[in-house]
Computed example of a mutant assay.
Amino acid sequence: MASQPTRTVTDWDSVSAHEEPLPPPDLPPWGVGLLGAFLVMERRREYAVLRTVDADTGRVLTGPAVESAVAVVGSLLIGIPLGLGLGVLSIRVLSLFLHFPHPRSPSPAVCIEVTALLPEP
């Protein structure tokens, strides 16, 4: 019975070329750049249409301002509760596997107030 040859670190013949677990590192920036280019082109088209119907500068700038305000408020209303909820959930899940001792020191705000009240040497 013939023994199989051992593989070494430099044995690249057995590795197929199509196995690539991660995308190349320059692929995500190209995607973000392409998305940004499409957004800029769409915004310029909107400005052209608004200028065609004789919209003044205030009316042209109101649309993007309202869109950005809605996006900020919406992301805050969704992101803050979701982040806090996931934080609480992760602590509960991790506490099943790890032991977190109760902190014996007071909160940092109490420490700051106490040190502010101490007399100077």
Rank of each mutant, 00 (worst) to 15 (best):
V73L: 15
A71G: 06
L50Q: 14
A65P: 00
L117H: 11
L27C: 04
L61F: 06
W30N: 05
V53I: 14
P29Q: 07
W30C: 08
V9Q: 03
E120F: 01
S107A: 13
L118C: 05
T57H: 08
L76A: 15
S90D: 01
V40S: 14
S3D: 11
T10P: 00
G58C: 03
G74H: 10
E20S: 13
R51D: 10
G36P: 01
A17F: 11
I78Y: 13
V70L: 11
S3M: 08
L82E: 03
P5G: 02
P28Y: 09
A37W: 15
P121H: 03
A116D: 10
E67F: 04
G33F: 08
A65N: 00
P81K: 10
L35C: 13
M41P: 02
P29S: 08
A55G: 05
G83Y: 02
D11L: 04
V60N: 05
A116I: 00
G58M: 09
M41W: 14
S16A: 12
E120G: 01
R59L: 13
E46K: 10
L89R: 03
I91K: 05
V88Q: 07
D56F: 07
T8H: 04
E67S: 09
H102L: 03
R92N: 10
E20K: 14
T52R: 15
G79C: 03
E20N: 12
S105A: 14
S14F: 11
D26H: 09
V40P: 03
P119R: 09
L35I: 14
S105W: 04
R92H: 05
L35R: 15
A109E: 11
P119V: 02
D11N: 12
G36W: 08
V93M: 03
L61R: 10
P103L: 07
A71K: 12
D26Y: 03
G58W: 09
M1D: 14
P24Y: 05
L76D: 12
L39I: 13
V40C: 11
I91G: 01
S75L: 14
